[in-house]
Simulated assay, not measured.
Amino acid sequence: MRYVDAFNHFFPEGIWSRILEIPGTGADIGKRMRGIPCIYDLDERFRVMDQFEDYKQVLSLGMPPLETLAGPETTPELARIANDGLAELVDKWPDRFVGYLASLPMNAPDEAAAEAERVLGSGSACGLQVHSNINGAPLDEPRFFGVFEAAARHGRPVMLHPARTASFPDYSTEDRSEYEIWWTFGWPYETSVAMARLVFSQMMDRLPDLKVLAHHLGAMVPYFEGRVGPGWDQLGNRTSDRNLGELLGKLKKRPIEYFKDFYADTAVFGSRPATICGLNFYGVDKVLFASDSPFDPEKGPGYIRETIAILESLDLPSGDLEKICHGNAEKLFGLTPGR
């Protein structure tokens, strides 16, 4: 089987060095990431990849989002350095890296739209990586529309990655999230909220060609199908200070049908039940193989190996397995089949 890993993370040398120079933030990132050589050391990345036969990657930067690293006067430069570095890796090692997802300076929305146009219009990037909130702001704010518009116009996907830190408290009486709840439960919540905002803001009606992939197999949505479906069919019944029911009449279809329009990936940290749940919700035409490497306990190969094993254990028809493992990625990203 051929595998195209649609969502995994790497810092090219140029942006890695630049980030480490940023006072405070750079030191914090370096402290954590230096313990995961596969995310910045190309030789280590190759060593991990060589453990798997006919395996290739679509690259994207790791966390945190660029807009959290610096102000809008600096992030456009960071985005160009990052994207040009990823493009260079794809050009130099096409047998390993079949494409990359561009990062954008989302705290500078006009520059973000321009950078999206630059990398998508030139055919350099095969998609965009956008995070679930922009320094706390929702993605459906009008100032971010140009980014989604560019993706839709060029027929390339927006890959939605969660962004939440310990500064998001779990209770209103506290000032931070405890026990890394912000990550374990907070990231799936973040992704699900961002998906809902794209749906109910009617962005998906305004941009019918927009394709969005929700990282980690659609987050909470598949498991909460009953709430997303029959629950949101009753939108407004639980709200007395606004007439939300009017929105149902403005949407072109049921809310759950929009959620099924999202794409999803298999990056669920080696959980077979979650994989089955997500596949049942989205179907084999909307799910892409992805590992989230190198954030497994082995710092590289673990989630790749476990995800492959789970997919092979599901006894899917060979045609369906081919779609998930490489066909859907080739189609969504506009890749040459077999590259």
Rank of each mutant, 00 (worst) to 15 (best):
Y3H: 14
D5N: 13
D5V: 10
I15D: 01
I19Y: 10
I22W: 04
P23D: 04
M33Q: 10
M33T: 08
C38D: 11
Y40V: 08
L42V: 09
D43R: 10
E44S: 13
R45F: 06
R47E: 08
R47H: 02
V48N: 13
V48D: 12
M49K: 09
L59W: 02
G62D: 07
M63I: 06
I81H: 04
A82N: 07
N83L: 07
L86H: 13
L89D: 07
P94H: 11
D95S: 13
F97G: 11
F97K: 12
G99C: 04
A102H: 07
P105I: 04
N107S: 09
V119Q: 02
S124A: 15
I134T: 15
G136Y: 03
P138I: 11
V147P: 05
A150L: 01
A151H: 01
H154I: 06
G155M: 05
R156Y: 01
P157F: 01
V158Y: 03
H161V: 08
H161M: 06
T165H: 08
S177K: 08
E178V: 13
F185N: 08
G186C: 01
T191E: 05
F200Q: 06
Q202W: 00
M203C: 03
R206F: 00
P208D: 06
D209R: 07
K211S: 12
K211Y: 03
V212K: 02
L213R: 02
L213G: 02
L217K: 00
L217D: 02
G218P: 10
A219W: 02
Y223C: 06
G226W: 01
R227I: 11
G231I: 07
L235R: 05
N237R: 13
R238C: 00
R238P: 00
S240L: 11
N243M: 08
L244G: 03
L244Q: 10
L247I: 13
L247E: 04
G249L: 05
K250S: 00
K253M: 11
D261W: 02
D261Q: 14
D261C: 05
D261A: 11
F269A: 15
S271I: 07
A274V: 14
C277Y: 00
F281G: 09
Y282D: 06
V284Y: 12
V287G: 03
L288A: 05
F289T: 12
F295P: 02
D296N: 07
K299Y: 02
I304C: 11
I308A: 09
I310R: 06
I310L: 09
P317T: 04
S318D: 15
S318T: 13
G319C: 04
L321F: 10
C325N: 14
G327Q: 03
K331F: 01
F333Q: 09
